[in-house]
Design a protein around this nucleic acid. Structure first.
Lengths: 211, 211
DNA sequence: CAACAATTAAAACAGTTGTTTAGTGCAAGG
DNA sequence: CCTTGCACTAAACAACTGTTTTAATTGTTG
């Protein structure tokens, strides 16, 4: 249809394949052949494989952070200070909603985020921080204000604990869900799992250090 | 000295390089040249790159699980049921101690565990499960008994949340520590961080679902 | 010391990687 | 009608991958 349908096809294929196998384990030839485009199209449209990886992240992080900003605006406008649970709810539901609304798979983005964290070849982490650092800091600041009893260092360690639990769990949601279904015959949906995660993460953030 | 000093040199180099860059990002030539051995030595002594990766994990997981088993034996022999905090303490301190005792870097193994999780090419996950699944299930069983108010499915999700917070945070301990030192001038040691992690993770495990 | 096996070494192997080059087709503008 | 620019393609590039082969060198044992 449009003259640059090729770009979209490449991004679609790369997004899926990167999430399944990782970045270095996915060759440009695999991407271009599943996308049904020529090999050289990646370098033509994106410049390099690195820039393709960044473009994949940009395509889902930009609407995600935009939706999150809107949600935080709305909640802040309501007046009272946001609670930990409200902030986590915002983060999770917006992540789910803004991406699912475009008909894309939220779990795939969680896997990509997990990969970005662990496989990060430097360039990707720098790209994400420079592009979306502000969104991160706004959320972290609001969360810190919701936890006034914590000193800054304690708060940031707790924040990383929470991010670890979130990214780690959701990035392998499919695998964990399959294990639990096999062992207990209990199906878990992603929203249900977020219902479990919100109170657990909130408890971890709020507990007094001296237990 | 010994006739197969080569094996140790290869394992040492592979351990460091894998932890720094990941598996596919580390070539056999990089490993053998930093180890000061011939390229073919890897295939001669280990068979393939996959088996080398498994050997690296075996070398630190075997003493780790053995120490953990001993620690759990000791604590169980003492009689009363183990608490969540005691179990987490055992896990963390033993992991720290058994590896540091051999003069090796505990954080490196956390990074490897994180990689095993996210970069797992299948063979590694199968290897770890078949070799160390029993240790994992014993620990999980004891932890579940320490949390009798949780139904099995809830418990296992919480377990994954806890593992996520642990692996994620400790596997990038150096990076997080550097950020906090820059922003707050506060140095954090690994033991201090575990002191922060134990109560936080325990709170996440213990909280009642309906908050 | 001779003979055998274990280990190390150099070199080549076949395959894959990301990227570049040169050229094709096509549509819009002068 | 010709040209300019854009999207796309096939082919080749050089570099790198894990692995194997063949030969040289050890170390050990009869």
């Amino acid at each position: 249809m449009s003259q640059t349908d090729t770009i979209g096809r490449i991004l679609d294929a790369a997004e899926v394949l990167f999430a399944e196998r990782g970045f270095t384990e996915t060759s440009l030839r695999t991407i271009t052949s599943t996308a049904g485009v020529n090999l050289a199209a990646v370098n033509y449209h994106f410049g390099s494989k690195k820039e393709l990886i960044q473009a994949v992240f940009e395509r889902f992080l930009t609407p995600f952070t935009a939706s999150l900003a809107g949600e935080l605006d709305r909640r802040e406008a309501a007046g009272q200070r946001l609670t930990v649970e409200e902030l986590l709810e915002s983060l999770y539901r917006v992540g789910l909603g803004s991406l699912a609304a475009e008909g894309r798979d939220p779990q795939r983005f969680m896997r990509l985020l997990g990969l970005a964290y662990s496989q990060s070849q430097g360039h990707l982490r720098r790209f994400i921080v420079s592009r979306y650092g502000d969104s991160y800091h706004r959320f972290a600041g609001l969360l810190e204000r919701a936890l006034p009893h914590l000193d800054p260092v304690s708060f940031y360690w707790r924040l990383y604990f929470m991010l670890g639990a979130t990214v780690f769990t959701l990035s392998s949601f499919d695998a964990i869900e399959a294990i639990l279904r096999e062992d207990f015959g209990a199906q878990s949906s992603l929203p249900e799992t977020l219902d479990r995660l919100v109170p657990a993460a909130a408890a971890m953030l709020k507990v007094n250090a001296e237990g």
